[in-house]
């Protein structure tokens, strides 16, 4: 099992994903690994290779208010490109593209849950918006609960 925090700690609310990892460090059962990534798709594909269950937390820009939490299971459907990085864009590639490349290559984990935290400010800086900070706690608790529940259904095998 992997928990992936996507984002840059020096880009304001883009640090939401890594902040969730900080909240989870030391509070998870053995066999659950935390990894921080910049969000570039091949890095994501490599990170979840061979994993049976993966949770990804990323900051997003959506029409919802800052701090809003989106939760999507991507086994059967694509992520919204508008929220998670535009699918089909020919310039930058984002999380949504990583998911679709993984799907095309048959390299998606059986369970892949994406949490998106709506950010307010992505300018350079190290502070999180108060609403985003609250959402970070909410998502950390939710992911922890999901990991435990998954572990009860499928016994965790340590490394």
């Amino acid at each position: 099992m992997w928990i992936i925090g996507v984002g840059n700690r020096y880009r304001g609310d883009d640090g939401a994903g890594p902040a969730v990892l900080d909240r989870l460090a030391g509070r998870l059962p053995a066999g659950v690994d935390l990894v921080e990534l910049a969000g570039e798709p091949t890095g994501l594909l490599t990170a979840w290779e061979g994993a049976d269950a993966v949770w990804i937390v990323d900051a997003v820009a959506s029409p919802a208010p800052p701090g809003t939490v989106h939760r999507v299971e991507v086994a059967d459907r694509p992520l919204s490109g508008a929220i998670f990085g535009s699918v089909g864009s020919t310039h930058a590639l984002g999380l949504a593209d990583a998911v679709e490349i993984g799907r095309a290559l048959g390299q998606l984990p059986a369970l892949l849950v994406v949490y998106g935290i709506r950010g307010r400010d992505f300018a350079a800086g190290t502070e999180l918006d108060p609403g985003v900070r609250t959402a970070v706690d909410t998502v950390a608790d939710a992911v922890r609960a999901e990991v435990r529940q998954f572990g009860e259904v499928a016994p965790v095998v340590g490394p």
Binding site: L45, D97, A104
Partner: peptide, 18 residues
């Protein structure tokens, strides 16, 4: 249009890239 479409059209090529 993108790397996603390339992965669908030419999975072998993209696997090697990875």
């Amino acid at each position: 249009a993108s790397g996603v479409e390339l992965a669908r059209d030419q999975p072998r090529l993209v696997r090697r890239a990875l």
